[in-house]
């Protein structure tokens, strides 16, 4: 039973996608390649996948019946939803910021989407919810770029403000009539290569590929990295730093809003506090995925890997019956450990 399912579904998707760390991969052969230099040439996005496989193997050792395709798909589905919620966070972190308004952007967009389906129709409500996310991001970005406030303070204030808006505007907190097309792109079962999986899994992977292409291969994406790595350098090179920052936060907000709709579609429920757990876990997924919290480094492929690690941790926590409070504790510990590990490598 243990050899039935080597985790083939997540790894091809990551290896076929573009290398996220364009800088480190080709350092040229100088002398004999040592073990360390070979390790150094491995793209950062690979490490979280290695960590995931190790955790998966540990899970298999504890409970051999965990090593099944269904269990893997279950973990991957949980991970991809977390990853979709963390894509926006990735973009904020790359530009040396952070978006702590992700939780209530998720909640607001989900509730607004459900409330607007009646008057605007599903597609209109979908567009309106994404636009709301982009507007939230615009305000975040404008305050951060133009007024120079720190991203943490700005976005956490925005998060609080949004919660107030949610409580005022949506005094009903449970809405369960989910439009069909949202179910079709999220919880509907698809059969890919003979494996049955919810539609959200290929959707999330497709979104990952698109975003990674934008980040790696467009002028906007590379400008975002320059701004994140050295803002003053970007400014003195004549890059429109403020515009790049603001559009970055707008994309971040729109992606969080998209995550809200995906969560509604998959879990078929929405509430004012539905995004709360994504505050810590979105940052954790980004950081475990190899992004530098100081900016200038990160990839959405890595974020998917980070989300897989966290999802597997959640699975193990459930299997070992530790309870969800322990899960938060472990997430916090993972963030601290990963940040200190990557911080060391940065200093070396």
């Amino acid at each position: 039973m243990t050899t039935v399912a080597p985790p083939s579904s997540p790894s091809p998707s990551s290896s076929s996608s573009p290398s996220p760390d364009a800088g480190t991969s080709t350092t040229g052969a100088v002398g004999r390649p040592s073990f360390g230099s070979i390790l150094g040439r491995v793209p950062r996005a690979v490490w979280p996948l290695v960590a995931f496989l190790v955790l998966f193997a540990i899970g298999g050792l504890i409970r051999p019946n965990l090593v099944t395709v269904e269990s893997l798909i279950g973990t991957a589905t949980f991970a991809i939803i977390l990853a979709i919620a963390s894509f926006g966070q990735t973009i904020a972190v790359i530009q040396a910021g952070i978006d702590l308004s992700v939780p209530n952007t998720i909640g607001l967009s989900a509730l607004a989407f459900l409330a607007l389906v009646g008057p605007l129709g599903p597609l209109g409500a979908f567009v309106a919810a994404l636009a709301a996310g982009a507007v939230i991001g615009f305000f975040n970005g404008a305050v951060i770029a133009k007024l120079g406030l720190t991203p943490i303070v700005t976005t956490i204030a925005m998060n609080g403000l949004l919660f107030g808006v949610i409580l005022l505007a949506f005094n009903f907190s449970e809405l369960t009539v989910t439009p069909d097309f949202v179910i079709a792109i999220t919880s509907a079962k698809l059969s890919v290569l003979g494996i049955s999986m919810p539609a959200v899994l290929p959707l999330g992977l497709a979104l990952m590929v698109v975003l990674q292409l934008v980040l790696s291969f467009t002028g906007w994406g590379r400008s975002l990295f320059v701004v994140g790595a050295a803002a003053e350098t970007a400014r003195l090179a004549g890059l429109p730093v403020d515009r790049i920052r603001i559009t970055g936060y707008m994309l971040s907000g729109a992606l969080a809003a998209f995550a809200g709709i995906v969560i509604v579609g998959y879990y078929q429920q929405a509430s004012a506090t539905m995004g709360a757990s994504y505050l810590l876990s979105s940052v954790a997924a980004v950081v475990v995925g190899g992004a530098s919290i100081f900016g200038g480094r990160g990839s959405v492929v890595g974020t998917v890997g980070g989300a897989l690690v966290l999802a597997q941790v959640a699975t193990l926590v459930t299997v070992l019956n530790l309870g969800s409070n322990i899960q938060q504790l472990i997430y916090g510990a993972i963030i601290l450990v990963v940040i200190s590990l990557y911080g060391r490598r940065r200093a070396a």
């Binding site: 467009t218 002028g219 906007w220 590379r222 990295f225 790595a229 050295a230 350098t233 003195l236 480094r297």
Partner: peptide, 26 residues
């Protein structure tokens, strides 16, 4: 601090002023 993005490649540093949002990069 003002001239280079030290964590980015030589080529991308040279290209930094010439990136346009809607064009190719990387």
């Amino acid at each position: 601090r003002e001239g280079l993005a030290l964590e980015m490649s030589v080529g991308e540093n040279l290209l930094a002023p010439w990136l346009k949002a809607y064009q190719l990069g990387g």
